[in-house]
Design a protein around this nucleic acid. Structure first.
Lengths: 216, 216
DNA sequence: GAATTAATTGAACGTTCGTTTTATTAATCT
DNA sequence: AGATTAATAAAACGAACGTTCAATTAATTC
């Protein structure tokens, strides 16, 4: 046999990507074979090589697009406000929403870095660093403005990101808590962790204001 | 050739374990071959099978002993005090010390769970759950005693553990921060995160007391 | 409707994998 | 010193791996 009726390159490539993210998240990159992936898509292994020259190219493509998606999501969610509290709240909400929505992609991007060549690893880490830098800027601004109480900006940023990304380990959409409830709880943990202080005029607690201002 | 001069089963087994933890942490379980491991130890691949019947047995042994070590470390560090603040401080200190000291073992135990058979996965997860339960008990006691301000005990426990375990991702012993500095910062982040409150008599801030009471 | 291009199959390649078997030598025991 | 046990090497096993190649058919273009 050869070309099958109804076959379509674009559809096949999309199916390969989706199946690959799920399989790699479940089995790991090394443990997933190209034959297994092909079977999931309903195709022979050789057909995969029409879309991705090597297995590593496939992995890199998935990771790069995941990181690009994360940066784009933050660009879209980034608030106009200069208020560090509002910016931090937006960062937390975007991070949790993105990571719950793209759980498998996050798993792949975080756990399979060691299977990348040196150059490609560098590219992915560069994007990750750019994303983390955004959080550090928010924390620094907030600390300088006297709104946050932070010992070490870099360390706090890492702690927050690891805490938030951790939701993908245990969160299941059909269980006890909704995404909104989880987000609310993580928001308040974050605000306490950075020691958000009473506003300059003392009239309102800034975190409470931020919660009202932003749809969860 | 056959038995080599000076060969000793106990030493070889110990060397295999150590090399395996390092190799699996660096390359991943699936990516590490038995021949690679044997070469690291200075032995032929067949010799490994005198100590571990299969590759998965080796992985499971490493993981089980790591988790047993973690539970034993906490049993030894567990404070006599009933004060939730002191107990939480001890938990954080023990967790960070253990995870920095056994970084590679933690990597293996956290990242290679999917390579375990169902039964063995269950065994490891049971130990992990027992360890996490200790933290939840501390948080619950503290919340009930009015010393902590916590929205959701289970969610806060997961957030704290992921935040703390995250140190193994970025911490390098020879860089900017010492273990003591990292621990101090994580302690204060933890205490803020759980909303430690002024003591009942209002005389002292409990976290400050706890810091003085416990050697960091 | 013929020619061309796109998509895929089926078979094969060389390599590496985890593991087993057998033989051999070092250390220990009697 | 001889017998036994412990620790290893060397070679081989079949299976699975990523990848390539040639052949074949569907869809598209002219």
């Amino acid at each position: 046999m050869a070309r099958t009726t109804g076959s379509d390159g674009e559809k096949t490539e999309a199916a390969v990507r989706e199946a690959a993210v799920n399989l790699i998240a479940r089995l790991g990159y090394e443990a997933m074979s190209m034959r297994q992936l092909a079977a999931e898509v309903g195709v022979q292994a050789a057909a995969l090589y029409r879309y991705f020259p090597t297995k590593e190219d496939l992995l890199f493509t998935l990771m790069r697009e995941h990181m690009e998606g994360l940066l784009q999501a933050w660009d879209a969610a980034r608030p106009a406000s200069a208020d560090p509290v509002a910016r931090l709240a937006a960062y937390v909400e975007n991070h949790i929403a993105f990571h719950i929505e793209r759980r498998h992609g996050t798993h792949v991007s975080n756990m399979e870095l060691r299977s990348l060549s040196h150059d490609r690893l560098t590219q992915i880490l560069r994007m990750r660093t750019a994303y983390e830098k955004e959080l550090r800027a928010i924390l620094r601004d907030g600390a300088e403005a006297g709104r946050f109480e932070i010992d070490d900006v870099g360390l706090t940023a890492m702690a927050l990101i690891q805490m938030m990304t951790g939701v993908i380990v245990w969160f299941r959409p059909d269980e006890r808590l909704s995404i909104a409830e989880v987000t609310t709880t993580y928001l308040s943990m974050t605000m306490r962790l950075v020691g958000v202080k009473i506003d300059a005029d003392g009239a309102t607690r800034p975190f409470e204001r931020a919660k009202d201002a932003i749809a969860v």
